[in-house]
């Protein structure tokens, strides 16, 4: 997975990443082997978790941590659902609209907020997430209030409704692949270079000609746009949304997925979601302990693998070498 770190791009796309891609492909096929609806459901949730976390990763690449990510998923969900249910728009219009609208909101609030760095940005985004929930509860005619909006129509593509879990899964998988491809392109290109420069040394980046404020805002817009995109798919898959769905617990779980997977690695969100999303689903009886489980995993990973699970192969070979 050496090619997934920012600092050593394309060249070393060696056996490691090939093996990783193969593992992911095999894992992606598991629901078809078992044929279980439950497994398809988990696989869809993994894709959605990875997609949202990939948006959060984009923001992390410029060195910022957003605790309002859940709210942006919510903005996208409500945008799409309202367009589809109230204005009779097709899902395929609502979906990009959700991404664009979430991105636009991020653009407007990002300009003043991104002046704050580190914990101040984290705190203000946390407050914003709460604000989103409270404001939405204030307008039940739009949000459905605390009882939310139920009976959201299923995802439909050019009049073809995705009734089976397996169909939704294929669609979600394709969308995740598209998002990952976009991020891969960004990282290899000039913008990705700017992102990591800003993350590593803001003063030097600015003095090297990089418009650091605009660069951070672009990351925030792209990342939050991806969140909105995820929200639209999520809403139409689950069929129910309410302001509480997008409370700050959702933001926190995305942060944990990202940090556990690897904050700066391209594959980080995917690895984090693969590992964490199924965990509480399988431990059915322990579902109310999801946050405790996540917390424990987070502490263990931060203690032993601060760069996340994606750094594990590198760490292992390092340990092996030092053991010899």
């Amino acid at each position: 997975m050496s090619d997934t770190s920012v600092t050593s791009p394309p060249k070393r796309a060696g056996l490691g990443s090939l093996g990783f891609a193969l593992c992911v492909a095999l894992l992606a096929l598991v629901p078809w082997f078992t044929g279980s609806v439950f497994h398809f459901h988990i696989a869809i949730m993994v894709c959605l978790g990875a997609m949202a976390a990939a948006g959060l990763a984009t923001i992390a690449w410029v060195g910022q941590l957003s605790l309002a990510h859940g709210a942006f998923v919510g903005i996208g969900a409500y945008t799409c659902v309202l367009l589809v249910t109230r204005l009779d728009m097709p899902f395929l219009v609502g979906l990009p609209a959700a991404a664009v609208f979430s991105g636009a909101v991020a653009y407007i609030i990002g300009t003043p907020l991104l002046r704050l760095r580190g914990v101040y940005f984290v705190l203000i985004t946390f407050a914003l997430n709460e604000l989103f929930r409270l404001v939405m509860l204030e307008f039940p005619s739009v949000s459905g209030g605390s009882s939310g909006i139920a009976g959201i129509p299923k995802i439909s593509l050019f009049g073809w409704e995705l009734r089976d879990q397996s169909q939704v899964y294929v669609f979600t998988l394709l969308m995740l692949a598209a998002v990952m491809a976009l991020l891969w392109t960004i990282r290899r290109g000039p913008l990705g270079r700017w992102f990591s420069a800003v993350e590593e040394n803001m003063a030097l980046a600015e003095s090297s000609g990089i418009p650091t404020a605009r660069t951070q805002n672009m990351a925030f817009v792209i990342g939050s746009g991806i969140a909105g995109f995820t929200g639209a798919i999520m809403a139409h898959y689950i069929g129910f949304i309410s302001p509480v769905t997008f409370a700050f617990q959702l933001s926190v779980s995305y942060v944990i997925i990202l940090v556990v997977g690897g904050r700066l690695a391209l594959a980080g969100p995917l690895v984090g979601a693969l590992f964490l999303v199924p965990l509480p689903e399988f431990l059915r009886s322990a579902q109310e302990y999801q946050h405790i489980i996540y917390g424990v995993v987070l502490i263990i990973v931060l203690r032993f693998l601060p760069a996340g699970l994606t750094a594990l192969p590198g760490k292992l070979s390092q340990w092996r070498r030092s053991g010899e």
Binding site: T7, R193, W194, A197, E200, I210
Partner: peptide, 19 residues
């Protein structure tokens, strides 16, 4: 703090050259 510490020397300079 004159460099981007975790990037390669080449990558450091590319970031300036992109201007």
């Amino acid at each position: 703090a004159t460099t981007f510490p975790t990037a390669s020397v080449r990558e450091n300079i590319v970031r300036g050259a992109l201007l």
